Simulated scan of single mutants.
Amino acid sequence: MASTVRVQAPIGQRALFITTLVVPLTGWTVHAVSLHRKLSAARKDPLTGLLGRDGFTAKARQITNRYGDAALVVLVDLDHFKQINDGPGGHAAGDRVLVATATRLTAWAGSRGAVGRLGGDEFAVAVRIGPARRELRLAQLTQMLAQPVQVEDGVLVDVAASVGAASPDTLGATDLGLLQRAADAAMYAGKHTGRAVLAGPQHATVPSINGRRAGRPGTDSLGQAA
């Protein structure tokens, strides 16, 4: 009986010791996972080098709050991107198109603009462009995005993008969530037309989820855009 007691005591002590370690470690693991998710959302996109969703949101808010009516929020979707991924070049060709698009958007936005990849073939830009220059600058953007992309030696693929934009002076608010929703609705309204659409008040009333038009693929699984 005594031997049994001596065997149980160390086991109990070990169990207690392990428990005291596991409890804080479990708490730390939960914290680490949460922190990793936050860092993953905020860090730069590994493929394009653009801001992630949270990083873009933070910088875009700074731009809209600072420049007010002179700010412009732009959403971009690549047209027929799935066909590029499913084509002869496969996902490698798709990646080159994404990188080229990121480079073009960065050049267009300039060093003071914010450019982010929201996921897949979806991009967002926040930039200072006054009302007098918007139409011209947006036309320049669609032309830039429509240039063929070299996906391998001697092989070019045709690309095109749908572009929607929204500005505080048109919508009467600098709220980034509202601007993104309106820009998204405007982009959808101009889908496959080859021209950028500047959102009007009617685009701000389109039902949305997470800052994007309701019914759009993936809206229910994304974090808050603003």
Rank of each mutant, 00 (worst) to 15 (best):
N210E: 06
W108D: 01
R117F: 11
G49Y: 09
G211V: 03
N65I: 08
H36V: 10
L72F: 00
G116F: 08
G200R: 03
A160Q: 12
A186G: 00
V30T: 14
L16F: 13
T4Y: 15
M144I: 07
H36C: 11
H36A: 15
D153Q: 15
A160T: 13
Q224P: 10
Q147E: 15
R14W: 11
K191T: 04
T193I: 00
P10K: 08
P24A: 02
K59R: 15
A183M: 00
V99Q: 14
T103K: 14
R134W: 06
P10R: 08
Q143Y: 11
A71V: 02
A160C: 13
L198V: 09
K82D: 13
T205C: 02
P201D: 00
A42M: 02
A182D: 00
W28K: 13
T57I: 06
A93T: 11
A114G: 06
Q224F: 09
A186Q: 02
G89M: 08
Q62G: 15
F123V: 05
A146L: 10
M1G: 15
P10W: 07
V151K: 10
T29F: 15
V197A: 06
A132P: 07
T174H: 05
T219N: 08
H80K: 09
V159P: 10
L105I: 07
R128L: 04
V125L: 01
L136F: 12
R96A: 08
L51V: 06
G116L: 03
A9C: 05
V163P: 02
L222N: 07
P24T: 04
R216N: 08
